[in-house]
Every structure is written in C-alpha cells, then in structure tokens.
C-alpha cells in the first residue's frame, strides 16, 4: 500500500468514525450483555431509531446550511395529533376516519406549510432561526393540544397502524422507510447541484451569494424539507403508538441534535454526511436498548445514557483533532 493509499484509508476511517464507534459498542454489548446478541435486538435498535433518525436528517440539513430548526419536535407531535385526530375513532377524534394515504398527504402538506412559515421569518424578515423555531417549538405542540383538548386519541385507521406492524422479510417496514429516506437524502446532498448548494451556503453564505447561488431560495427549501420530514416522522409515530398522547415525542429534539453531533455534522455548518447522522441515531438507540434489557437501578439510566453520549462525542472530537496531524 502506498503512502497515498494509506492516507486515503485513514481519511475514510476518520470520516466514518461514527460507524466504528457504533460497531465497537455493538460488539462490546453483544459479548458482555446477556440476551443482547440476537437479531430481534438489532432489529429493535434499528426500529427505535426511526423517529430520531428522520428528525436528525431534518436537523442535519438545517445545520449544514448553518441554520437550526428547534420546531422539529413540535411539528412531529402536531403531525401525530393531526393524524390521530383525522383517523382515530376515540372520543376526541374528528369522526372523519380518514385513511392512511389521505392523512399522510395532509400532514406532509402541513409540514411544508410550517417550513414555509418558519422560512418566511428567517429568510424574508431576517430573524435568527433559533428564535423563530423556538417560537415554533412552543406554538405547534400547543396547536395539537388545542385540537384534542389535551386528551389522547387511540385506535386509528388500521392501514396506518399496519405500517408500524408490517415486516418485509425480517426487516420492519418502518426501518426500510428510514433507510430509503437516508439513501434519497444522502444522494440528494452529495449528487445534486442543489445539495451541494446547501453545503456552500452553510460554509460561506456571502461567497455563495456572490457566486450566484440564490441563498434565500436554498434556505426556504431547507426549512420546507425540515417541516415535511418532521411531519412524516410524526405520522409514523402515530402509527407506532396507535394514536397520540399530549406528551408524545417529548424530548426527541435533544436526541435528534445529539445524533447529528455524534454523526459528525459541524454546528458551524457546511461539514458532515448523513451516513454519520444515521450511525449517530443508531448509537443512541443502542444505548437505550442496552439500558432497557439489563437489570440496573432505573434512577441511574439517564446518567449512563448521558455518560455514553459524552464518551462517543469525546472520542469523535479527539479523532477529529488528531486527523489533520495524521494526514
């Protein structure tokens, strides 16, 4: 192997460090945790990473463009509520009993409108995205609470629930949906001109504008994509829980942010790959799963979860720091 080849190999390893952390964790858990080393556990890890995984794409695209979307969690919750409200049979449902495809179209349009709403204030009114989406974080979940008067809605259309309960071979349909979305968005970011514009805008907005890139248009579409992806995650979450409850998805924003950071997306914008984000989401899901199956005092769970996230991020940070010296 030539020096150049060695450098390329090392660069590839460092670029995909989240995957190696994931592999190391899964290996350690498989050999040390009783009952871990079985396909259904790995299947669960993937299944449970679906919602965080999709939200993490939404967040990653925003961060790549050097913006932030804090409203993703509330859009997810609102989408789950709207889905349950339109397709549920409970006391607080609409009574319309709409089917899966119709509710999906409605919530995706709703997500797009929310994205447009956010982008209007960010792009046109030049208000910081942190502030605008923080307001959205508060507003959109509250709208969901108003719709169902703060009650849960159970028993939604069977065709929606079926999405959560169908397997294609040994793999849940939800996981396939997640993988397809990752592949599509990874290709979109890496292979299309518009995807590259997102990186350019995140790396240097002024230079991108001077180079003729319509930065406002790029950011508007970024926020619309974020809204649509969050709404899709909410629809899938309603399928998973056969309805919605007022606290559904609470705290998932922080998991999505953690997945993005662990996955190597720079908070400074313009750097990072969705494959790393996917690994980040699966790392978080693996930690939760191992905590769920081992017998430990439940009060220590969040300490362990937090410590493992810090270890993963620290490891990633150390390697990224030594990377320029090695290459």
């Amino acid at each position: 192997m030539t020096i150049i080849q060695k450098k390329e190999t090392l660069k590839w390893i460092l670029d995909n460090i989240a995957w190696f952390i994931l592999l190391a964790m899964l290996t350690i858990f498989s050999f040390t945790v009783k009952g871990f080393a079985q396909w259904p556990i790995y299947r669960n890890i993937l299944y449970h990473s679906v919602f965080v995984g999709i939200l993490a794409i939404a967040e990653a695209i925003c961060i790549l463009s050097k913006e932030m979307d804090l409203s993703v969690e509330s859009v997810l919750a609102l989408s789950a509520v709207v889905t349950a409200y339109l397709a549920g049979i409970g006391l607080d449902a609409s009574g319309l009993h709409l089917n899966g495809p119709t509710t999906l179209i409605i919530v995706l349009i709703m997500g797009a409108i929310i994205g447009l709403f956010n982008s209007y204030f960010i792009v046109r009114m030049k208000i910081n995205s942190f502030i605008v989406t923080l307001a959205g974080y508060l507003i959109f979940r509250a709208i969901g609470l108003i719709i169902t008067k703060g009650h849960g809605v159970v028993n939604i259309s069977k065709d929606i629930v079926a999405v959560a309960r169908t397997n294609i071979g040994p793999i849940p349909l939800m996981v396939i949906i997640l993988l397809v979305i990752y592949v599509i968005f990874s290709l979109f970011l890496s292979k299309t001109q518009f995807g590259r514009f997102i990186y350019f805008v995140g790396d240097n907005r002024e230079a991108s504008y001077n180079a003729g890139i319509k930065t406002d248009r790029v950011l508007t579409i970024v926020f619309i994509m974020s809204g649509v992806l969050s709404a899709l995650a909410g629809w899938l979450l309603a399928a998973r829980t056969n309805g919605s409850s007022p606290s559904l998805g609470q705290g998932i924003l922080f998991e999505a942010m953690a997945a993005v950071v662990i996955g190597g997306v720079s908070l400074q914008g313009g750097v990072g790959k969705l494959s790393g984000v996917f690994a980040g989401a699966v790392i978080l899901s693996s930690i939760s799963t191992v905590i769920n199956i081992v017998n430990i005092n439940p009060y220590y769970m969040n300490i362990i979860r937090g410590a493992m996230i810090i270890i993963a991020v620290l490891l990633d940070a150390i390697i990224r720091k030594i990377r320029p010296k090695l290459i």
Partner: peptide, 25 residues
C-alpha cells in the same frame, strides 16, 4: 419486579422499553 423509567411520561419511550425488555425476558 423489574423497574424501568419512561422519562417525561413519554409513551414511545414506554413502548420501546417493553419492546426491548420482552426480547431479553
């Protein structure tokens, strides 16, 4: 009795706990 916690009373967390735990137990 094996006790687990669903922080924030979050329903999906409870579902995931049951999903994982039943595989090992």
């Amino acid at each position: 009795i094996e006790t687990k916690i669903a922080y924030g009373w979050e329903a999906t967390t409870a579902a995931n706990i049951a999903d994982d735990y039943l595989l090992a137990h």
